[in-house]
Design a protein around this nucleic acid. Structure first.
Lengths: 229, 229
DNA sequence: TAAAAAAAATGATATTTATCATCTTTGATA
DNA sequence: TATCAAAGATGATAAATATCATTTTTTTTA
């Protein structure tokens, strides 16, 4: 269980920072971020920002996982991305000038830091490394989403599930995958019932193990083969 | 029919420029682009760049339409975007440092200018307006693709076709929509046969008119209602 | 302008996947 | 720890869409 007091999490000791966009900051840049941020504890299932609102700054994930999603016409969520420790979320809408097109909420307990819009944009302007990192990140994601779209359009639910499990495996690292069946279905883009049935098939075929809610990947190879490329 | 000689198209007189990322360039910035670019005529169906290759620069569309697509496992195309006059294409991969994840080829005769990587990156570095424009563009597209993914996952083919026709209507402006059924199916994400049948339904329901290959939107309202939001 | 190729259209059928109804298990909370 | 709500699971059925085979029309090119 995480510390619930809203105390300051120092960037200096943030284990997630090395792998983040702030990873190669020098000391004084780190303290610049440190001085201008605020930190907060979020409990599981709490919204960080919602679709349609205007961004006031960006969120930097110190601890925990966060889902980024949109809602279709009937309110059904489509999970676009699951962010983990070290990721900065919500910076896209700051450049687009539009309100958020996606929403974000926690999938588990999280510690999340907040950097105000002005401070962040100021950093972008004065720090070419950060700027280039951001542009690189934006471009990469654009490519990933093209593939996501293609998968949605051309792969069967079974293939998409295999693909999704591989991504989730990466995100959860050596932890077990821990999502509700509904969230997983909303990531794969299918009905919850269909997802449940397929998970059982995958278990029977020796690709995963199911520990009630948590999933363990047993046969990465087979999943990759099924997912295609 | 376009002029096939590879003569220089001046940015100065480029009708598409005003609506492009170079739209608010001052005179000397325009001539900077002008001096560093080369122009070429492309015939219909010609590739501009292909998936997996490394970018040497960016392409600026002076005249004509271009499809941006990926290929699924069985080689089937998924069209992600259709670019028109004024759009700059292929700049994403230049920032990501990765090879192209998408391919581009012409849908009709095109005049396309080319700006080398070094020149373009130099412009980005020295021109904050261009840089901000690019970041804005990248972010916007990221939002659009989130919605695209959600549509793919949650809408029926019929709804997606309505959505696609609205987008195509915007792109083609007062021209009629002019795509093969296969390309259209690859944009909507469905089988060609299904697309053909649905187009007939749409015609019968008075939403579009079919002039052999070209389509005309008759009832925008109804399409919007069908497409949702 | 005829011939060939490509695109469009149509019908029959199979398959995948969603939906609805219901039941069971798990986990949270009073 | 008993109770309740949420999540997970299962079966039956319906609907949407893909696939395959074939024909017609349009476009391209020799």
């Amino acid at each position: 269980m995480l510390d619930k007091s809203h105390k300051h999490v120092s960037c200096d000791t943030c284990g997630a920072r090395k792998s983040s966009l702030f990873g190669n900051f020098c000391d004084h840049e780190v303290s610049q971020v440190d001085e201008n941020k605020s930190c907060a504890y979020y409990k599981k299932g709490q919204p960080i920002f919602i679709e349609g609102s205007f961004p006031r700054g960006v969120f930097c994930l110190n601890q925990g996982k966060v889902k980024i999603f949109t809602r279709g016409d009937e309110g059904k969520e489509q999970i676009i991305h699951i962010a983990k420790e070290g990721e900065i979320i919500g910076f896209r809408a700051m450049f687009s000038g539009e309100p958020y097109k996606v929403a974000a909420s926690t999938l588990e307990e999280c510690n999340i830091c907040f950097i105000g819009k002005e401070d962040f944009l100021n950093m972008i302007d004065t720090n070419p490394t950060l700027r280039n990192g951001i542009m690189k990140e934006l471009s990469k994601e654009l490519g990933d989403r093209a593939i996501f779209i293609t998968n949605m359009a051309q792969k069967s639910v079974r293939e998409r599930l295999a693909f999704a499990l591989l991504i989730l495996g990466d995100i959860y690292g050596d932890e077990q995958i821990n999502l509700t069946r509904e969230d997983m279905a909303n990531f794969v883009g299918t009905a919850t019932e269909t997802l449940i049935r397929l998970l059982k098939d995958f278990k029977d075929e020796g690709m995963i193990e199911i520990h009630t809610r948590k999933l363990e990947i047993i046969d990465n190879e087979k999943l990759m083969q099924l997912a295609g490329r």
